[in-house]
Design a protein around this nucleic acid. Structure first.
Lengths: 193, 193
DNA sequence: CGTCAGTGTTTTACGAGTAAAACACATGCT
DNA sequence: AGCATGTGTTTTACTCGTAAAACACTGACG
């Protein structure tokens, strides 16, 4: 998936004010190899943004792959864990619609997942007494225990991976990603033309 | 991972040196809201890693969503574009197996995509003369033109998104992501216990 | 030669997600 | 009350990816 992203920097380099930290020649990840290939084929394109966006995509893919393993062991998919996690962290019941918004997935997907999770007795549902269209979903004790059992394991793994960066660099990274994410989310539904 | 509904509140300010890095208090993205919820429920857990990994995942999701739109318009899925892009950037023929490795997907998926792309005359295949098991796939002129037409559009969008960060910060971000990615890829197949 | 282990690719069976339609109900208007 | 319109949820039909099995072929070895 990494292959696609990249982009010319806006202000461009007229004089030589280049973001010098971006390209470490000694550093060799798959993204830098891909960027090199694109530069050879399209020398006129500035590949700077590829170094960021390609890496975000690739990191996300590898992280998700790594974190899927313990979930599978517990018999959960990532999407199911996200749903249970949403219930756990909010601490109260949620409707299917709220769960869909909370987990950034479609209502139909939530319906299917709730069906399975209910069968496995990880969540329970009850109807709303005032409005009989809506349902309220809550974790069972088993569901809560499952989430609470898995979460520390995941966090421990994440901590281990991030130990590649000093705490200072971790803070920088979090801050910069927050800026980028604010921008992306600020664009709202107006993602792209 | 997941997050709450996003009240679009522009977060700016990032000026000078912050005394403490690690946990940025007043950042308004969906991830910070989620992290706050987890902290309230599990105060003893170190939620620091979520600030980075949650944001990487969310950024990746939003970026991919945004970049899918123009691809759909061109009648391509992201996976198809990645495949064509791999052929374009390497500049020579690739076998299905090589394409699978290059695009980080399974051989079966590549087979299916090649079938469709061949029908649409975006790629061509020929058999190897020495080893009749292997095929060689290359872009047609139409396929090359399609990639070359879409790529600059994607790059322009990425540039616009990244303009939320100064060139210096972009460089920092790229560098830190490279370190993280090197670590993740260095773990090789040994992802997780 | 013949066959056996290994490799490259495709097929099969199936699970999971989505968009759009279908439902079920609430709410507002006359 | 009766009905149109909107909202929350589920169903339907379909696409796409995957794992595992099946194929097709090579290369080595007795």
């Amino acid at each position: 998936m990494t292959a696609t992203i990249g982009g010319p920097t806006p202000a461009d380099d007229a004089g030589g004010a280049r973001p010098r930290a971006g390209t470490d020649p000694a550093r060799s990840d798959t993204v830098s190899a891909v960027v090199r290939q694109w530069r050879a084929v399209h020398p006129q394109l500035d590949t700077g943004p590829m170094e960021i966006i390609g890496r975000i995509n690739r990191c996300a893919a590898l992280l998700q792959q790594a974190e899927d393993a313990p979930l599978r062991r517990a018999g959960l998919s990532r999407a199911e864990f996200d749903l249970l996690g949403a219930l756990r962290r909010t601490g109260h019941e949620l409707t299917p619609g709220e769960l869909a918004r909370e987990t950034f997935s479609s209502g139909a997907a939530v319906t299917k997942r709730l069906k399975q999770l209910t069968e496995r007795a990880l969540v329970e549902r009850r109807g709303d007494t005032r409005d009989r269209r809506v349902a309220h979903v809550r974790l069972t004790d088993a569901g809560r225990d499952l989430v609470d059992g898995i979460l520390p394991e995941q966090l421990a793994y994440e901590t281990a991976v991030l130990s590649a960066l000093t705490p200072d660099k971790q803070g920088d990274l979090a801050g910069r990603l927050a800026e980028l994410l604010s921008r992306l989310e600020g664009l709202g539904g107006a993602l792209r033309t």
